[in-house]
Design a binder for these strands. Structure first.
Lengths: 192, 192
DNA sequence: TAATATTTGAAACAATCATTTCAGAATTTC
DNA sequence: GAAATTCTGAAATGATTGTTTCAAATATTA
């Protein structure tokens, strides 16, 4: 009876994500976005919606692909402490090698405070990382790989908390070594 | 021979700072700004300059007043470790009680990556905190108040690094207790 | 007080913003 | 192949963007 949508919606959202990643929500114009996505604004409004809906889909796309990557990364590691270390080191690598910092963190500080829908996506992303790590932390405590006498909840928060500061540090100093040293110290403290 | 500027420039910049603090650089319009500052845009362009120059003055105003407050706060504390603890606890209080998160951090993630002048201001602010704390950390190591066998530079970085994550955590969860627990754990680790 | 110099306020500026319109192209189903 | 339906592209929408203009108001100095 009728035509189908011509463009690949997931690919288009991924291109939009790149623009938001680089310019931020307020810094990205609809012209920037449609140009990068390779579609006309009428197609965009007909399928995805307005700028805000596009942004929501873009950050969801970002967080969901990160979740998949994280799950894959840790699936066949036997020692929970080693898995935590691997997660920390992978974060350090990403922080010190990707050009654009983290879209979730940028979004948190730019718009999450005043935007409930965005905040929900960010919170879900955070909760995923939290659940992923707390499982490992609990097992590591059970196995006595972590000897610090603290509850797993606080310790998980404590570990996750470092990543944001490392991002900030790398934006300001562009010094990989400083971050690697901090990560090493964190791991030592968990292992001791 | 001629008139003087009618408005109080420092007060006007302070008002502009509040707008940038709440809306971000890209989110704040010149109309938002001049309205809050209580001056006409022609006066603004005649004295302070354009939006970018105004922003630079606003974040300088922010960082300079924080520096003064920090110096005052620590001036008559004898134990260096106690001074570090006080600084950490004061940060926790600010993070969990101010409504707008930290302007310097927001700026870092929104514009510092692509704006050299802004980055310079942010870097200077960071360097001030670093110098303030490293003095205390070195003294604390000398006095054996801190027993962790690590160099003072890394340890200073490590301490400062927590604050950004605490800000992020409070934006997402609005949970004071989580942050207080992390701060307490950090202090314990330094003291042990 | 008069001449001078600068600020101020209101309006206007072109450019860009997000969004909508709609005729024509395209593809599907019968 | 014809009819039906939806998508696409280009243009236009009115609002808002940052910035400038300029006459009138104002304060200064001699």
């Amino acid at each position: 009876m009728a035509r189908n949508v011509e463009f690949d919606e997931q690919l288009a959202i991924s291109k939009a994500m790149d623009v938001f990643w680089k310019k931020g929500y307020n810094g990205a114009s609809m012209r920037d976005l449609t140009e990068a996505m390779g579609i006309n604004s009428s197609s965009l409004y007909n399928t995805i919606g307005d700028k805000h809906q596009l942004f929501l889909k873009a950050i969801k796309h970002y967080t969901e692909s990160r979740m998949e990557a994280a799950k894959k990364q840790l699936q066949q590691i036997t020692s929970p402490l080693k898995a935590i270390e691997k997660y920390i080191n992978a974060s350090v690598y990403t922080i010190t090698n990707e050009p654009n910092s983290c879209l979730a963190i940028k979004t948190t500080f730019e718009v999450a405070t005043g935007d409930a829908e965005v905040q929900k996506v960010i919170k879900a992303d955070n909760e995923f990382t939290y659940q992923l790590l707390i499982g490992l932390v609990q097992k590591a405590i059970e196995k006595k790989e972590i000897k610090v006498s603290q509850d797993a909840e606080m310790l998980t928060d404590y570990i996750i908390n470092h990543f944001t500061g490392w991002h900030e540090s790398f934006i300001i100093h562009q010094d990989k070594t400083r971050i690697k040293k901090m990560a090493q110290f964190l791991i030592e403290q968990l292992s001791q």
